[in-house]
Amino acid sequence: MVQVTYVEADGTRHTVEVKPGSSLMQGAVWNGVPGIVAECGGNCACGTCRVYVEEPWRAPTGEASDMEEATMEIREDERAGKRLSCQIKVTEALDGLVVHMPPSQF
C-alpha cells in the first residue's frame, strides 16, 4: 500500500493507505476523504476531483494531458500543481505523496 496525504483547504490532513494501481481520486473516495467529489466517476469529464500536487511530487505524478488541461478550464485557476486526481495513477513511487484540495470543487 502507498501512503497519501490529502489536505483540505482549511488545513485538515487525511493520511490514508491507497492501493497501487488505483487512481488518486479512488484513493480519496474509497477512504472517505471529504473534498473529492468525482461526479463522473473518473472519466476526466466533470472536473470535480481537482487537487494541487505539492512539490517535490509534481514530476513523479506526471504532466496533465491536453484533455485534462481542457477539462480543468471549467474555471480560472492559476494555482501551481493543479491536476485532476482521477488522472493520476498511484504507484509505489508515490509513497508519501501530499496533495491539497480546493475549498470547493464547483
Partner: peptide, 19 residues
C-alpha cells in the same frame, strides 16, 4: 457537495454537452 444538483447525471454517461 452532496446537495449539488445532478441535472447532468453522474458517472460515465454524464452529459457530454454540459459545458
Amino acid at each position: 457537495p452532496n446537495q449539488r444538483h445532478v441535472a447532468f447525471s453522474l458517472g460515465k454517461h454524464m452529459c457530454l454537452g454540459q459545458y
